[in-house]
């Protein structure tokens, strides 16, 4: 029962106020893309034990999608941030690097 702070309204929302949306920072591939690109977009998921970026919607609250960086093993949350970005913000990357020196990066 995770607790994630919605970056839009500031509510520390428990999981039942949220709906999950799977892996974050996927790049959409539409018509004209190769089979490999489409597969990566549609099916290939990281599912790491450790640092992970996820999509969550504050479904019972302000209704906004946001992104969360957390550790799937310890459930530590490194931060949440608005969904209008194609990559994690620098401050969150720095925070993860400080806490997980062995982390290989988000891509």
């Amino acid at each position: 029962m995770l607790l994630l702070e919605c970056p839009y309204c500031g509510v520390k929302a428990e999981e039942t106020e949220l709906s999950p949306g799977g892996e974050a920072h996927l790049k959409r591939f539409g018509p004209g893309s190769t089979a490999e690109e489409f597969e990566a977009y549609m099916f290939a998921r990281k599912n790491p034990k450790g640092v992970h970026f996820e999509r969550w919607r504050h479904a019972y609250g302000c209704g906004k999608w946001f992104l969360a960086a957390r550790c799937t093993a310890t459930l530590e949350v490194f931060g949440t941030y608005p969904a209008q970005t194609t990559e994690p913000p620098a401050d969150i990357i720095d925070k993860i690097k400080a806490k997980r020196p062995d982390w290989k990066g988000w891509k």
């Binding site: 709906s19 959409r28 999509r55 919607r57 479904a59 999608w65 969904a83 209008q84």
Partner: peptide
């Protein structure tokens, strides 16, 4: 409605 908002918020913001 959620599907529409997903695309508007996360892809075509």
């Amino acid at each position: 409605h959620a599907w529409m908002e997903d695309w508007l918020q996360c892809e075509w913001w």
